[in-house]
């Protein structure tokens, strides 16, 4: 029983999460000969929404098959988190987002604009930098790539700066 609640109900300790995510890199290379990465798959969704797009980038080899492994992998992540939410008793749907919705009482529209804007920066930034936290920070550094180290330093540095600004000006210094 204790093992069940340790794995499925309680929050994992950091080392278990680290081991689970880290081991995925060699496992995916060994069994699938594929580099762990998520953000490139966002192009698959654009191609699914607009299959007849004339944009060159969306017609490159990467997106020849919009239902390729990246799409399947992304669907898997959603299912995995859904299962985790069920075993740990999270609500099916929630409009909460941690501190942000606890400490602020913005209108729905303001929240939507804020998180959408954050998403735009993430989506655009990840494509410019050629990867995200998975592809660069985890996979890229683990495979000893200089560009991944550089990208990760900037991810963390500007994440930290922005968080302090948010704390000061948005969350009101709390």
């Amino acid at each position: 029983m204790r093992v069940v609640s340790f794995l499925f109900v309680d929050l994992w300790p950091w080392w278990l999460g680290g081991i689970a995510i880290g081991i995925l890199i060699p496992l995916m290379y060994y069994f699938l000969n594929t580099a762990l990465g998520v953000s490139t798959g966002y192009g698959n969704f654009l191609k699914i929404i607009a299959p007849a797009t004339k944009l060159k980038w969306l017609n490159s080899d990467t997106y020849k098959n919009r239902f390729n492994w990246r799409f399947i992998f992304i669907i898997g992540i959603i299912i995995g988190a859904f299962l985790s939410a069920r075993t740990s008793g999270m609500p099916i749907l929630t409009s909460e987002m941690g501190l942000f919705t606890e400490e602020l009482s913005w209108s729905h529209v303001s929240y939507v604009i804020w998180f959408f804007a954050g998403g735009v920066l993430l989506g655009f930034g990840a494509r410019l930098a050629n990867g995200c936290t998975s592809g660069h920070s985890i996979h890229g550094i683990a495979t000893l790539q200089k560009s991944s180290l550089v990208a990760t330093i900037f991810f963390l540095a500007f994440g930290t700066i922005t968080t302090f600004l948010i704390k000061l000006f948005v969350l009101g210094g709390s």
Binding site: V38, S39, Y42, I77, M97, G98, F100, W114, F115, A117, G118, G119, V120, L121, L122, G123, F124, G125, A126, R127, L128, A129, N130, C132, T133, S134, S147, V150, A151, T152, I153, F154, F155, L156, A157, F158, G159, T160, I161, T162, T163, I166
Partner: peptide
């Protein structure tokens, strides 16, 4: 890599999420 990294870092803090 640098420009994208900066934008991504800001987005990470704003949304509290990354593409994964």
């Amino acid at each position: 890599t640098v420009i994208g990294g900066i934008l991504f870092g800001i987005g990470w803090a704003v949304s509290g999420a990354c593409p994964g």
